[in-house]
């Protein structure tokens, strides 16, 4: 991978949902080009952690520096920072009133002032890459779940982000559609994109991750390479979790 320049630096982050401690002293550094997969039981705080990286959640203390900018600092322009961060959601969240193509060109045109023709060319390339160029002019409701999620990935890529965040991208999909979405993600990983992925797909984690992070009850319990993680987990909680899912 390309060097060890830290691109996401999470330091001592705490977050509470009322009484519930969602994030408990999280410290984690992710380097440019690294693929990090976060796993853990539901309610462990993994999605919350991912969402704090582009400030979709507030935090109660600590700091998160993305690409050299403290995103929770007063005066930092989150709208600019977010352009560097692509986000893919469990429920796709495509804009249903826009065609697939318009979903892709909207942000580059409005935010980066890219001329329509150029944005369109870029969008069609991306749709080609995710394998649904022929659906450019249909509305999202005409697509299957797998197709919608691939469009959502392309939409995030259209802003040419440095980092891609995936929040359980295959959890809302029918089983036969999971593969097509994971294939796109593997391609992206092989191209050197920095990726942070919350997922239950252990096969993907094993194949793609540089590091696997196991979370439970708002804490990072264990960090390791896929090999270490799946063959010799150190913590009893990790061992218990793996014995339940594998």
């Amino acid at each position: 991978m390309n060097g060890t320049r830290p691109i996401i630096e999470i330091s001592n982050v705490y977050k509470f949902f009322g009484q519930l401690q969602a994030l408990n002293d999280i410290t984690l550094t992710i380097n440019a080009g690294e693929k990090v997969v976060i796993i853990g039981p539901s309610g462990s705080g993994k999605s919350t952690l991912l969402r704090t990286i582009n400030r979709l959640e507030s935090i109660d203390s600590g700091s998160i520096v993305v690409n050299g900018k403290d995103i929770y600092a007063r005066g930092s322009d989150i709208n600019v920072i977010r352009q560097e961060l692509g986000m893919v959601f469990q429920n796709f969240n495509l804009f249903p009133h826009k065609t697939v193509l318009d979903n892709l060109i909207m942000a580059p045109m409005k935010l980066k002032k890219i001329p329509r023709l150029e944005a369109k060319k870029l969008a069609l390339n991306l749709l080609d890459k995710v394998g649904i160029k022929d659906k450019a002019n249909v509305y999202p409701s005409m697509l299957s779940g797998g197709q919608q999620q691939r469009v959502a990935i392309a939409r995030a890529l259209a802003m040419n982000p440095k980092i891609m965040l995936f929040d359980e991208p295959t959890s809302a999909l029918d089983p036969e559609m999971i593969g097509e979405v994971l294939d796109v993600m593997v391609t992206l990983a092989n191209e050197g994109m920095t990726m942070v992925v919350v997922t239950h797909e252990m096969g993907f984690a094993r194949e793609v991750a540089d590091r696997i992070i196991f979370m439970d009850r708002g804490q990072i319990v264990e960090v390791g390479t896929p090999k270490q993680f799946f063959t010799q987990p150190e913590q009893p909680r990790t061992q218990k979790f793996l014995s339940q899912i594998l």
């Binding site: 986000m87 959601f89 802003m159």
Partner: peptide, 18 residues
């Protein structure tokens, strides 16, 4: 309108008003 729509738009870098 589903909250996910707001989150998706904000994640792309759109402001509140946009």
């Amino acid at each position: 309108i589903d909250k996910g729509q707001t989150e998706a738009a904000r994640s792309l870098g759109f402001s509140r008003a946009q």
